[in-house]
């Protein structure tokens, strides 16, 4: 099975991440097997931020975790700076993971409730015994200051003494302390208030520049993703639907699902009347996904071809690819 194809993969001389035909299946024995991610391929260039959007259950978080090999993918390959993470021995993987770090959605659950937060931030350095203890202390203090947390308070306080936004900052500090190359952000702001969300998004942008990070930003809110990403990939039910530079995706969405995602963002302006591209029905069960194009059960443009034949990624614009038989943007002649 080829999944959505590889037309959208780029010839990058400095790729940080190259994911090919990633497949993650859950459940074994008599439990129903759920293919959470099927045939997903994408790449991230150095210094780039790739956004991944989709509803819950679309496999976006599973993709992020499969890159970290937690748990590893059932099939497909994850090349990180050219090295196949899936083929590594446990000890090689432990070392490689220090260069790929992750932050999570729930800021409270991301921190050990019984440890002082400074210890949590210092933990990675202790594990790898990087530098002298004085150097380590300096690194931790600097990073805490960078994320806007008072190092002295962090030395004595436990997570419950901080707000959700502050806990998220602390998690970010812990992820950055090993100076990773790639930072995977799994819905880092969806549990936060809009005002705090803006603080954290701005902080991520600042840190990305300061620590020369490459980022993968997973979220369900396209407005948030568009703000922070250079390129955006849209996922639906374990498949990649569309990938494009973020402005292009917003201006010329090609997949009907992308259109719906865009329309469902509430606009903070009562004068704007909702266009009415609303999804009908619920997400189909991933245990028994629809045949052909997985979106056909809820797609206004679906026909017989969509029900039987699985669409493959094809170019519809400059660096803009869609897996749809009837895209909203007419195909552009680009040699692929």
């Amino acid at each position: 099975m080829s999944g959505a194809g590889h037309a959208h993969l780029r010839e990058l001389n400095d790729a940080v991440l190259q994911v090919r035909d990633l497949e993650v299946t859950f459940g074994s024995g008599r439990a129903p097997r759920v293919q959470a991610v099927s045939g997903v391929s994408f790449d991230i260039a150095r210094g780039e931020t790739l956004g991944i959007v989709g509803e819950s259950g679309c496999g976006k978080s599973t993709t992020g975790r499969a890159i970290m090999q937690m748990p590893p993918a059932t099939a497909g390959s994850v090349l990180f700076e050219g090295d196949d993470l899936g083929a590594m021995s446990p000890s090689e993987l432990r070392l490689a993971r220090t260069r790929v770090q992750m932050i999570f959605q729930d800021p409270i659950s991301s921190l050990n409730p019984r440890r002082r937060v400074r210890d949590s931030v210092a933990e990675p350095l202790d594990i790898w015994s990087r530098g002298t203890s004085a150097e380590r202390r300096q690194v931790v203090d600097d990073i805490l200051a960078d994320v806007g947390i008072d190092p002295e308070r962090a030395a004595v306080a436990r997570p419950h003494e901080f707000s959700g936004g502050q806990c998220q900052r602390i998690s970010i500090a812990r992820a950055l302390v090993l100076s990773p190359t790639l930072l995977i952000c799994d819905e880092p702001v969806s549990a936060l208030d809009v005002s705090v969300q803006a603080q954290v998004l701005n902080l991520l942008e600042d840190l990305k520049a300061r620590y020369s990070l490459t980022m993968m930003f997973i979220a369900h809110d396209l407005a948030v993703v568009k703000n922070i990403s250079d390129r955006v990939a849209v996922m639906y039910l374990g498949r990649l639907c569309e990938i494009a530079p973020s402005r292009e995706l917003y201006e010329h969405p090609a997949h009907h699902y992308t259109r719906v995602l865009l329309d469902s963002i509430p606009v903070p302006d009562p004068e704007v009347i909702a266009v009415g591209h609303e999804l009908v029905g619920d997400l189909p069960s991933p245990v028994d996904p629809p045949s052909g194009c997985r979106f056909h059960t809820r797609c206004p443009a679906a026909d017989d071809q969509c029900r039987t034949e699985e669409p493959v990624m094809r170019a519809v614009g400059e660096d803009h690819y869609v897996a749809c038989h009837h895209p909203l943007v007419t195909s552009v002649a680009i040699s692929t």
Partner: peptide, 17 residues
Amino acid sequence: SIPRLDDDPHTRLHAIS
């Protein structure tokens, strides 16, 4: 502070400090 779809990518958001 709400990110808007019609803003360009990487537009700095107005966070309340």
